[in-house]
Amino acid sequence: MWTEVFPAFFLDPRSSLLNPMISLSHVFKRYPGGRQALNDIGFTIETGELAFITGHSGAGKSTLLKLLVGIERPTSGSIIVNGQNVGTLQARAVPFLRRKFGLIFQDHKLLFDRSAFGNVALPLEISGYGAKDGARRVRAALDKVGLLKYEKAMPITLSGGEQQRLCIARAIVHRPAILLADEPTGNLDADYATEIGELFRSFNQVGVTVIVATHDQALLTQLKPRVIALRNGALAEAA
């Protein structure tokens, strides 16, 4: 079932195991006003890796994620995602960079004026999928996170854990090469958090590169990922 949802990754000629999926070198980020958010960051995440970015709030986790998807630009240094230099990307190319990611947010960012199905279908609509093929994919994604029976429900009627899983379904429906989660378990009970952790593990097992920014210790002991720790905008240790 799950390999059926993700063959695009294996077919993408650029995602070879020889090339790193993400590679940062000497990345600095200073916000207007002078605050130094990131200080000489450099690391590589291989294709198919499961990596956690940890650190206290203010350590630079959010800034790092924003740089990866082109919300912010680095002050200097290079960020290569899947062979593309994000730092020098033209504004009109940014949407296409973002389609390589599946984004999972702490606050879900669901649209409350449409059903669960409509939310998950959004990335496919954006990239111009046919309605028929799209519907099949949407149901596969909903099934993967265990929400198929709620496809007609409005997001507001779902529990916090269900909303987070709906957000995950939306992130995987277009079969991205990289799953990027920002504090995915921040608002959840331990049981729900474990469920989410298992989902990440299963995605990673079929070859998706999974990057999670979190300070959830339980999730760390559950998944035993590679850890990239940040402290005050610099790398604390590279495991």
């Binding site: 009109r92 949407p95 960079l97 990611f101 960012k109 649209l111 004026d113 959004l122 990335p123 954006i126």
Partner: peptide, 16 residues
């Protein structure tokens, strides 16, 4: 605003 922000985040072009 929220909707625009979200679909921008998940890769919608300005034209879309």
């Amino acid at each position: 605003r929220d909707e625009v922000e979200v679909i921008k985040l998940i890769g919608a072009t300005d034209a879309f």
